[in-house]
Design a protein around this nucleic acid. Structure first.
Lengths: 195, 195
DNA sequence: TTTCTTAATTAGCTTTTGTTAAGTGGGTTT
DNA sequence: AAACCCACTTAACAAAAGCTAATTAAGAAA
């Protein structure tokens, strides 16, 4: 808990101590065991989560009922069913803990209302949004620039911890490829390399 | 001009007339001919654009020096070198007019500072950010859910105007595939379909 | 009009991925 | 220990995409 506050301070240096304590009192701590969900597809929901510890993922279902991991979130990253929050719709995705995790969650409308009076809250929310946007853009770039095998290599280079912590089947859909293909790619890389 | 203000009012109904006129006075109108750029890769830049008319794209270079179109922006959508704005880096992408277009551009730091005093500005910026984020997420979902041919189909269904207005070579990289492949996909779709 | 240039299509071949199915191994449960 | 479950791997073949190059089409320039 203490260490988490320290991390927050480091990540958002402009937050005063009073704001942080207000924030902690507004937020709700939630602990999830591996496989437990924070939000389920179809639910109406209005909370946004900041990951304190662990690893979560958002997944949607494809036409075959398979889970497609759209995004992972780890320490100090925020995760939410954004379309659901912004458009007031039932969630189209599920947020689930990949390993046991701790979150602090906030009511989205409350946060935005608070922000109107307290600029610090607004700044915090905007920063979180901007970060989330940059991550999404980076992900789109990976898909447009790199072919499946290269995407795996880039993921390995940039976010190796994901490859260590998430099972292959999640990673495969996250990379937009088939689990069988990903296994093959791994082998190609580990053995004599290509060409 | 008049019609544009009407569109703004429709898209952001909470903006008062005074805010809108303030906004218009703060913004700078810019007209781009086809192929002209708003921001070039490598430049430092701090403006964010709202498209009034036309069609723009952001592209980056891959390792072979080919242009990869990461995102399109059309009427009432915002476009900017986000990573450049948020992290104060030289732009890693170029923003270019796909056809002759009109923009209104704002200084990003000014807007954020203004927002601290005037909640309406903040709300506008957050709404724009949230929309941009939703678009990026949708795009990631397309990549993870659908194979190249299906991605083209989805694009056709959801954003057919892009397919009418943007040349194939831009669309191909936008969809993460080779122009030759896209041409083949088109043919496969138009002729007897698959199977 | 003819010429030039560039985008798009088509073709032939290679490489990669998708698909289905059969192993393999680790970890639980009984 | 045996039986079971599940993730991952491996294999074999089909389908799709990548790559190179040649051809066609269309628009701009001479």
């Amino acid at each position: 808990m203490e260490e988490f506050i320290l991390k927050i301070k480091k990540a958002f240096p402009y937050l005063t101590d009073t704001t942080i304590s207000k924030l902690m009192s507004l937020g709700e701590i939630q602990v999830l065991q591996e496989g437990e969900t924070f939000i389920k597809q179809g639910e109406r929901h209005n909370r946004i989560a900041l990951v304190m510890q662990g690893l979560l993922r958002n997944y949607i279902m494809n036409d075959n009922g398979e889970q497609i991991t759209v995004v992972f979130a780890t320490e100090l990253q925020s995760i939410a069913p954004y379309k659901c929050l912004f458009l007031q719709q039932p969630a189209s995705e599920t947020t689930e803990a990949v390993k046991s995790s701790m979150l602090i969650t906030f009511d989205y409308p409350t946060m935005r209302k608070l922000g109107e009076e307290e600029p610090e809250f607004n700044k915090l929310y905007m920063d979180a949004l901007e970060k989330t946007l940059m991550n999404a853009i980076e992900r789109v770039e990976d898909f447009t620039i790199a072919k499946p095998e290269e995407r795996y290599q880039r993921l390995l280079a940039k976010h190796g911890y994901l490859i260590e912590q998430a099972p292959l089947k999640y990673l495969a859909s996250y990379l937009g490829i088939n689990p069988v293909s990903l296994s093959r790619i791994r082998k190609r890389i580990s053995t004599g390399k290509k060409k």
